[in-house]
């Protein structure tokens, strides 16, 4: 089965990021494919590498990056939602004359079309949010 997952809330504020992560891990270990994970609304905050939680807490951003590298996941942050919230990759930083970027490893910034495509290409689309 081919799944896509949408994450609509920021890490550490809402359980959505944790639920999505646990669901994806369970789906992968059951042998399913994850076509794409799409981050929207405040969910784009899952994709900043500047996140620094205390050591005794889970590192939600690193956890995504590690899962992406282990399973070759496609983690896509919506560009429009990301720009509003200050999540930028090197290209966006240059285009908007910012003094730095903050996108975490394994994430890429792209358009909302990636979400629609995920809906079209996947057998199931699950949404985690508020």
């Amino acid at each position: 089965m081919k799944f896509s997952v949408m994450v609509n809330e920021g890490p550490y504020t809402h359980q959505a990021s944790d639920s999505a992560y646990q669901f994806i891990r369970a789906a992968l270990s059951a042998g399913h494919e994850i076509f794409r994970v799409f981050f929207y609304h405040d969910g784009v905050n899952n994709g900043t590498r500047l996140t620094t939680p205390p050591q005794d807490d889970r590192h939600i951003v690193n956890r995504w990056s590690e899962l992406a590298s282990e399973h070759d996941l496609d983690l896509v942050v919506c560009v429009a939602a990301a720009q509003r919230r200050g999540i930028v990759d090197p290209d966006e930083a240059k285009r908007n004359s910012k003094d730095g970027d903050n996108i975490a490893p394994g994430f890429r910034i792209s358009g909302l079309g990636q979400l629609i495509e995920a809906g079209i290409e996947s057998d199931r689309l699950l949404v985690f949010g508020d």
Partner: peptide, 19 residues
């Protein structure tokens, strides 16, 4: 909250996909 306006953006972008 932002859900309505960002939702509308998805609908308008999605319309180009002829679904």
């Amino acid at each position: 909250t932002v859900y309505a306006v960002e939702g509308l953006e998805v609908v308008l972008i999605g319309a180009a996909f002829e679904q």
